[in-house]
Design a binder for these strands. Structure first.
Lengths: 257, 257
DNA sequence: CAGCGCCATTGACATGCATCAAGCCCCCAG
DNA sequence: CTGGGGGCTTGATGCATGTCAATGGCGCTG
């Protein structure tokens, strides 16, 4: 709700879907972050032609569900999406949060079926990029192919960072790292790096970071007491970016020899 | 640098190292698991032409190091490779183990520099696949492009499985899952699914699974006491595959209501 | 064959986080 | 304005796993 999809805000659902959800890539504010990066204008136009833009997702609505057949990847235009999978014993594991300009769904390529589910954390607009068309286009546009390889590779390295975080770091370090990640992703979009509203619940944060809600809450309280964060429900203000970095960096050099 | 081009295989080296490192993809025992899958024979030949095969890596030798510029991905032909990154505070995080038929190095694509290091856990043979050539070939061979997308996607979903494991599961469950993973990867290569030698140390296992050596050791002892595994140093025999599966599956349905 | 060093095992103890439980805050509906 | 419910916070307690320490086993080297 704090990031209304441009052109969508009024008279959303019901019959008259004549609204232009059809922001083109060429005019999209995010085209320097998203897929079109590294393409020239005629290429962007061709990419634009394969992309589908639908009505925005309401909070809680699914973009896709684990197991359903894979046909497209998605770019977030506004709002926020969480991806999660359900473990064998029925618990949920959040695997990622996706913000405007970011692309999700690539996990589905390998088995031709989505390996996670994705749902909107708040009202969100999303561009659907049919994968078969993207593949064909990639064959014709090597820059696009390369860029998409890079996007997938980035997803891999980010997952590996999370693995490291989960495997080695304390609750405090994990929360600090997440806050910094959100901060820098905001900065990328020219939003405030020090003040933002978390779109996800404490439960989701804990789930993502391998912690319980209670621990998440306690860590926020502690960081507030240390004057590193100011936390008011979902509203976060980073008061001491250096301090936060220090915590996330596992206090390099804290120990003797 | 540590993988001399294939033209170097015979002739150059002193003595009788006339081994042909020049196994071609067409004749490679692993070609149904590896990159060539889904390609017809003329395509395999073209792929084969870009692949470099060097002398084997000795135990402990690096295949590539974090930070060095990225130029190729690698397929394991024999032996075993571990991938790891070094955290900000200098500790190591193992991010994966790679066995014959598996491909590593895709993390380097996004930044054009390797995001992890890779070193041989035992004497290993590796095929080097120059990435720029692979990209060009992919443009000409859509099946190859698709397959490579799938490989990257598989890496993503596997990382996500590890994330879930680290975030939700107990030490016992993690070890059980790793043993099962190795078991099924052995089976894929037509080796025994129930008896094998671990190429990695307890330290590496613990590091990979977010546990200390001591915990790994204790879990092995416990599983042995339960007659689920027979452990003799690195030699593992799975005595009760179902039992192991049950442990890894987090005892579905163990709790009331 | 002896000695050294690394890896693995085992035990005793410490601790960070989970669990359980209670209460509070905020938002929304009526 | 008032009541209810979900999400968040805070406290008390327990447990799984980390930490520290000692010992054992195996392979390598001279």
């Amino acid at each position: 709700m704090n990031i209304p999809a441009k052109s969508v805000g009024d008279g959303d659902t019901s019959g008259k879907r004549t609204h232009d959800y059809r922001v083109s890539c060429g005019s999209c504010r995010l085209n320097t972050l998203c897929l079109p990066i590294a393409l020239d204008s005629t290429e962007v136009e061709r990419l634009d032609n394969i992309i589908q833009r639908g009505r925005p997702l309401q909070k809680g609505e699914h973009l896709y569900q684990e197991g359903v057949s894979f046909s497209a990847v998605y770019a977030v235009r506004s709002g926020a999406i969480k991806a999660y999978r359900v473990t064998d014993d029925g618990r949920e594991q959040v695997t990622g949060f996706y913000f405007p300009g970011e692309i999700l769904g690539m996990d589905g390529i390998s088995k031709n079926a989505h390996a996670c589910s994705a749902r909107a954390l708040e009202t969100s607009a999303v561009c659907e990029i049919p994968f078969s068309a993207l593949q064909e286009l990639s064959v014709q546009m090597p820059d696009l192919q390369r860029h998409f390889f890079q996007l997938m590779s980035r997803e891999i390295t980010e997952d590996q960072q999370l693995i490291t975080l989960l495997s080695k770091n304390t609750a405090e370090e994990r929360i600090a790292a997440l806050m910094l990640s959100i901060s820098s992703r905001n900065a990328r979009r020219k939003l405030s790096a020090t003040q933002f509203r978390l779109p996800m619940s404490r439960i989701d944060i804990g789930n993502y970071l391998g912690l319980t809600v209670e621990t998440v809450s306690r860590v926020f309280s502690r960081l507030q007491k240390l004057d590193i964060l100011e936390v008011s429900n979902k509203e976060i203000k980073i008061l001491d970016l250096d301090g936060l970095n220090e915590i996330a960096n596992v206090h390099v050099g804290d120990d003797e020899d």
